[in-house]
Design a protein around this nucleic acid. Structure first.
Length: 333
DNA sequence: CCTCCACCGGAACGGAGGGGGA
DNA sequence: TCCCCCTCCGTTCCGGTGGAGG
């Protein structure tokens, strides 16, 4: 049934990119000067999640590495590395200069190491809006060999907190906008994965269209549904994906996504999430009261607010209402 | 319209944790 | 070994905001 499971994974990088040629050329135009030994331009990729931003960014860097010997590239997910220190150590890691880095390293030592690069270094900073301190971008701008490809899904409020000088620098980056995939584009992306990953004839085009409809332009969701369906079919010993299995795979895919987020939470954060999940829409005060009586060593109200904010960021919880009438509930019904 | 109240989130601070250097 | 310098997490403090109700 499953012929090559890798192509169904989230982080799989296709050999050929479909339906994003304009965006790819746009980005390549910014980076291409490096081939001639010139300084490439910084780039900013914006658009909704699942629209192919990360995929195109990584793909373009791969292309450059194939063309050039004297170039380094790396990918840093600012969601996982949201502090200045973690980003910097991620960047050093990408050029093999991360040896003997520890948290006690003097402030600027990490930057100095980056400045000593003798090759162009092109880095993807994914989910850059998750950075706690955007001032880091200013420091990275100051490193001549470094070119940044910044990836974010909401351009507007990302850079509102930085000063004008940095803002204008960021605005001068080549901006590539991504839209949601159209329905037929998603179908052909899925077809590609099916062709490489599954035995022939396991799923019909109609079924792929069904997946594309539900995924609503989000390629990651679409592939996740496909993956869950294939897994369920294989478990049941079937060699095709039935409509019933496919229907069941939709909530499973959502649960899988949710589960992954929940695993990243700390114990106390999980308790707070559990309260919202079990007891339905609640006010912040009510949530904190319940949380306080649920654990032995409760944190303060301020910390509970930080937790709630985090849950919203993780898309586990959503909020509505302002001020005193604010409530929190779990996402997706 | 104005005041109260709950909530929001920035800022500053402190302690724990962790590893290098004298 | 002790000291130092860092990060990370939570705390305290507080000004700002926007419904609800007089």
């Amino acid at each position: 049934m499953i012929h090559d499971a890798r192509v169904l994974q989230d982080d799989f990088l296709p050999r050929e990119v479909v339906h994003r040629h304009d965006e790819m050329n746009h980005l390549a135009g910014a980076l291409e000067p490096v081939v001639e030994g010139d300084k490439p331009q910084h780039a900013l990729l914006t658009g909704p999640s699942g629209a192919g931003k990360t995929c195109i960014a990584r793909y373009s860097l791969n292309q450059l590495e194939e063309q050039l010997l004297d170039i380094d590239t790396t990918y840093v997910d600012c969601w996982q590395r949201s502090t200045r220190f973690r980003v910097l150590s991620g960047l050093l890691d990408g050029v093999g200069k991360a040896h003997s880095i520890q948290r006690t390293m003097p402030h600027d030592e990490l930057l100095v190491r980056l400045e000593s690069l003798d090759h162009p270094y092109i880095v993807v900073l994914d989910e850059v809006d998750q950075l706690r301190d955007l001032e880091l971008l200013r420091e990275l701008y100051g490193i001549p060999q470094l070119t940044m490809v910044l990836v974010t899904n909401n351009k507007r409020d990302v850079f509102s907190t930085v000063d004008e000088r940095l803002q204008s620098r960021l605005r001068s980056a080549v901006t590539v906008r991504f839209d949601r995939y159209a329905q037929d584009e998603l179908v052909s992306i899925l077809q590609d994965r099916v062709e490489w990953g599954l035995e022939p004839g396991t799923i019909s085009t109609d079924q792929l269209a069904y997946i594309a409809d539900i995924a609503a332009g989000n390629a990651r969701d679409a592939i996740s549904i496909l993956r869950n369906a294939a897994r369920a079919a294989e478990r049941s010993g079937s060699d095709t994906i039935s409509d019933e299995i496919l229907r069941e795979a939709v909530p499973e895919a959502r649960a899988e996504l949710r589960q992954k987020s929940v695993e990243k939470l700390t114990e106390h954060q999980r308790v707070v999430y559990g309260i919202v999940a079990d007891a339905g829409p609640l006010s912040p005060g009510e949530i904190h009261d319940r949380y306080e009586s649920a654990v032995d060593d409760p944190k303060t109200q301020r910390t509970t607010r930080k937790y709630l904010r985090k849950l919203v960021e993780y898309n586990l919880v959503e909020t509505s209402g302002e001020g005193p009438s604010r409530i929190y509930r779990t996402t997706g019904g």
